[in-house]
Amino acid sequence: MITLYRPGDSLWHRLPTGRKAALLAALVLGISLVPVSWAWWGALIPAAVCLGCYAVPGIGVTRLLAQAWAARWIILVTLAGQLLFLGPQPAVVNTARVVAIIAVATLLALTTQVTELLDAIERGLAPLARLGVDPRRAGLLLTVTLTTLPVLARAAGHVREAQRARGARPRLRLFVVPFLVVALKHADELGEALTARGVR
């Protein structure tokens, strides 16, 4: 199965998966709760938190820039919609929060192997088994969600780069077919991985 995991020896890589997930979840929650009424501080604080998360030896700001570039369409759509309905300051603040949340959440996938993440989520959800929740399936759902969307975004970027290298014009119909092929291939690999884990 394709993942975003990048081997390394950074602080984030060495941190136990459960603590890392809890810490990053707390940061995401904190970023989402930054009030828009804080004027430009509402954009600077999420940006600073995000920059601090990536500015550790073994990760680097370059990786953050790569994540921002991969999410550029989300950034543009979010910024344009907010500018249209809310104005410049709320638009920048809300867009900064969205970008920071995506980047911080992606850091978990970049520094954690899928199997370790799944095991940590299953252990964390184990107490909910008394309420009828299947920790194994719930953990699998969360793990697949965390890994699939960034992988498809990266695949879309690869398709566009391949088309540019061949001199093709950026047309939607020329992009959709190869992207669907890549997406379906990923779905097949994901299905095989789930079957290997005994999930039907």
Results as ranks from 00 to 15, higher is better:
residue 22 A to C: 06
residue 192 E to A: 13
residue 105 A to L: 12
residue 18 G to E: 14
residue 146 L to Y: 03
residue 191 G to V: 10
residue 49 V to P: 02
residue 90 P to R: 09
residue 71 A to K: 01
residue 177 V to Y: 12
residue 24 L to N: 11
residue 162 A to Q: 13
residue 38 W to S: 12
residue 49 V to Y: 05
residue 41 W to A: 15
residue 69 W to V: 07
residue 109 A to K: 04
residue 108 L to I: 08
residue 74 I to V: 15
residue 111 T to Y: 02
residue 181 V to E: 14
residue 62 T to G: 15
residue 168 A to Q: 14
residue 96 A to T: 04
residue 114 V to S: 01
residue 73 W to K: 05
residue 77 V to C: 08
residue 167 G to P: 01
residue 4 L to I: 01
residue 93 V to R: 00
residue 194 L to T: 04
residue 22 A to I: 13
residue 137 R to G: 02
residue 180 L to R: 05
residue 180 L to P: 01
residue 17 T to M: 02
residue 43 A to Q: 09
residue 73 W to V: 13
residue 34 V to P: 00
residue 90 P to S: 10
residue 172 L to E: 11
residue 100 A to F: 02
residue 51 L to F: 14
residue 33 L to T: 13
residue 141 L to H: 07
residue 160 R to E: 11
residue 176 V to Q: 11
residue 87 G to S: 14
residue 113 Q to H: 09
residue 79 L to N: 06
residue 71 A to W: 07
residue 166 R to V: 06
residue 96 A to W: 01
residue 43 A to M: 11
residue 70 A to T: 11
residue 102 I to T: 11
residue 82 Q to P: 00
residue 194 L to M: 14
residue 78 T to Q: 10
residue 147 T to E: 15
residue 13 H to N: 04
residue 177 V to Q: 14
residue 135 P to A: 11
residue 92 V to K: 00
residue 70 A to R: 15
residue 21 A to L: 14
residue 31 I to W: 04
residue 14 R to I: 00
residue 47 A to T: 12
residue 175 F to Q: 10
residue 194 L to K: 06
residue 197 R to I: 01
residue 88 P to Y: 05
residue 25 A to Q: 07
residue 69 W to K: 13
residue 60 G to E: 05
